[in-house]
């Protein structure tokens, strides 16, 4: 059974507030005391426990810390404070075009992507046809990726991710693409992952999408969880905007 527990997780970023100075500029700033950096709290003591079978929606305005939260859960970011415990195989789709080699065929790219998700070459080779079939791209196995449309690439990467059997699937604005039939198929797959004890975390600005799929919703604001509950969170979020 999958689970993720975040305990007082904090993440700070040091951001440039002015153009990065030259070596001479840096040396002068030691004398003048003029600072070119500012510290931004992207996550501020976030505590969150997600149990098996949950499809969690994360909403919030731009810069509220949604993607940082997802990256912290995925293990991409190391946190400055607190602790994250994830049980189960985590697969993150934060950017759908990561790691693709445009000059290689779809088959070669499937093998490459599978290796990021800890699959052996033999296991990946066994799944190539299934992955292509789910993405509805069977006839393009020998086609090089630069000839694919963005939609085809999205379907391919999503298909590789779900065929790598994640217990915890982290999605950042990368869900519901393709035609209606493919959207329905993807949606069923997410619910199947949750039904067999997995976790799906869906970060999105599309509130209708979050309302449709998520059994639990958290709202972030300036790196803090300000609301945690069901679809009523969306109503209160919309009211705030009014």
């Amino acid at each position: 059974m999958a689970s993720i527990v975040l305990t007082q997780v904090s993440k700070r970023f040091v951001r440039d507030v002015r153009r990065p100075p030259t070596m001479l500029g840096r040396a002068l700033s030691l004398v003048t005391g003029r600072r070119n950096k500012a510290v931004v709290k992207a996550l501020d003591e976030v505590t969150l426990s997600i149990g098996p079978g949950t499809i969690l929606g994360v909403i919030g305005s731009n810069g509220s810390g949604k993607t940082t939260l997802l990256r912290a859960m995925a293990g991409v970011y190391t946190c400055d404070g607190g602790d994250i415990k994830a049980q189960g195989k985590v697969i993150s789709l934060i950017n759908l075009f990561f790691g693709l080699q445009e000059r290689l065929t779809m088959r070669d790219n499937i093998l490459l992507l599978c290796s990021f998700f800890s699959l052996s070459r033999r296991d990946a080779a066994k799944r190539v046809r299934r992955i292509a079939a789910f993405a509805e791209l069977e006839q393009y196995l020998g086609t090089r990726l630069y000839q694919f449309s963005a939609g085809m690439l999205q379907r391919l990467v999503f298909s590789v991710a779900i065929h790598s059997y994640p217990n915890i699937l982290l999605l950042d604005e990368v869900f519901e693409f393709g035609d209606e039939a493919f959207k329905r198929k993807s949606s069923r797959t997410l619910h199947r992952i949750a039904a067999r004890g997995g976790i799906v975390v869906l970060v999105s600005h599309d509130l209708a999408l979050v309302r449709r799929h998520c059994s639990r919703i958290v709202r972030l604001d300036r790196g803090r969880i300000v609301a945690d509950g069901g679809t009523e969170i969306i109503r209160s979020y919309l009211k705030r905007d009014d």
Binding site: E102, D108, L112, S115, S120, R144
Partner: peptide, 18 residues
């Protein structure tokens, strides 16, 4: 090791493909 090999193979193929 698997990932190193997969990346090396992909890069090598991509560079020599055309």
């Amino acid at each position: 090791l698997r990932l190193s090999y997969a990346l090396a193979l992909a890069e090598f193929k991509a560079r020599n493909e055309d």
